[in-house]
């Protein structure tokens, strides 16, 4: 089955910003609420994988990634995130490891 695809640069913004909406534009909170959460739910309902593409952006702050992927783990549990989400990052491959670190940490907190 084809995975659902979500590109941050294409579907949200080329310049991802801070953690919370109150801090500035294109926040992780906004991306989580408007894109990642609904896509994740859709993928789970359809028993599909969700591929999140990080390429094509100007870069990421750790707080943006923590808020989105850590937030997903806090809401659904790390196991559910690991089962459903795949991360694609050819331009910044080190981010994949960092994100799974955030997911683990979010579950423990």
């Amino acid at each position: 089955m084809q995975p659902l695809r979500l590109s941050i640069a294409r579907d949200f913004s080329r310049t991802p910003g801070p953690r919370h909406e109150s801090e500035g534009e294109f926040s992780g909170e906004l991306f989580y609420k408007g894109h990642l959460h609904p896509s994740f739910c859709r993928a789970r309902e359809g028993r599909q994988k969700l591929e999140v593409d990080l390429d094509g952006t100007a870069g990421f702050a750790s707080s943006f990634l923590e808020e989105t992927f850590g937030g997903l783990a806090r809401d659904f549990g790390a196991a559910a995130v690991r089962d459903t989400v795949t991360i694609k990052s050819l331009e910044e491959p080190y981010l994949v490891e960092e994100i799974w670190g955030f997911v683990e940490k979010a579950e423990k907190s």
């Binding site: 310049t15 910003g17 500035g24 952006t57 100007a58 870069g59 990421f60 702050a61 750790s62 943006f64």
Partner: peptide
């Protein structure tokens, strides 16, 4: 051209200032 490390540094430090 993008410089992802530089961008990330700017956003991190702007956020730190804000908080």
């Amino acid at each position: 051209c993008d410089a992802k490390g530089v961008y990330s540094t700017f956003i991190e430090i702007m956020g730190n200032t804000h908080e």
